[in-house]
């Protein structure tokens, strides 16, 4: 007969509790709730984003788009997924401090950004975009040329 080591249920529950408690504290201390909002100041919680935040304030899209409007998918489920993914990546990147300096946008977020450009400006760009699709060209990123729209390079 197998011995019952420390009533395994209690052990598991205890361990789970430790992890849950620690996790909750980290979430609270890292102001995790703030990330559910769309307040741009939240993105500047991490001072690595200070420059982007400052130059967005001075930018041409300041009055029509916040960080989430450009960098997060517009549908609720995709937004949740993107926030979760980015949140995880941010945590790893800041703990290990191994991200590229200056910070550079990755493929996944570039696609989100491109889709958001089109989402607002589709009516204007309809013909151009349709032509591109027709010729089988892969689309050039809007921001390849329109670099200073959201936030400008450091000057």
């Amino acid at each position: 007969m197998r011995k019952s080591y420390f009533k395994i249920n209690y052990v598991l529950a205890f361990c789970f509790g430790i992890v849950l408690g620690l996790g909750m504290f980290v979430f609270y201390y890292g102001e995790g709730f703030s990330y559910a909002s769309s307040d741009p100041a939240v993105c500047a919680n991490c001072h690595a984003m200070n420059h982007q935040y400052d130059s967005w304030i001075a930018s041409g899209h300041h009055h029509v788009a916040t960080c989430n409007d450009c960098h997060m998918p517009s549908t609720s489920f995709n937004k949740l997924l993107a926030k979760a993914l980015n949140g995880w990546n941010h945590s790893v990147a800041f703990t290990l401090e191994n991200y590229h300096r200056p910070i550079q946008i990755k493929e996944y977020n570039k696609n989100i950004l491109q889709r958001n450009c089109i989402r607002c400006h589709q009516a204007l760009m309809e013909d151009t975009l349709l032509n591109l699709y027709k010729e089988g060209h892969s689309m050039n990123l809007c921001i390849h040329c329109h670099k200073n729209i959201g936030h400008m390079p450091i000057q």
Partner: peptide, 25 residues
């Protein structure tokens, strides 16, 4: 899970998770 090996496994797994969480904190 209720065996000696299982217990050690749980201890290791939880300690790894707590280690990473503390690193982040």
């Amino acid at each position: 899970v209720n065996s000696r090996k299982g217990l050690i496994g749980i201890a290791i797994a939880v300690s790894v998770v707590v280690f990473l969480l503390t690193m982040l904190l």
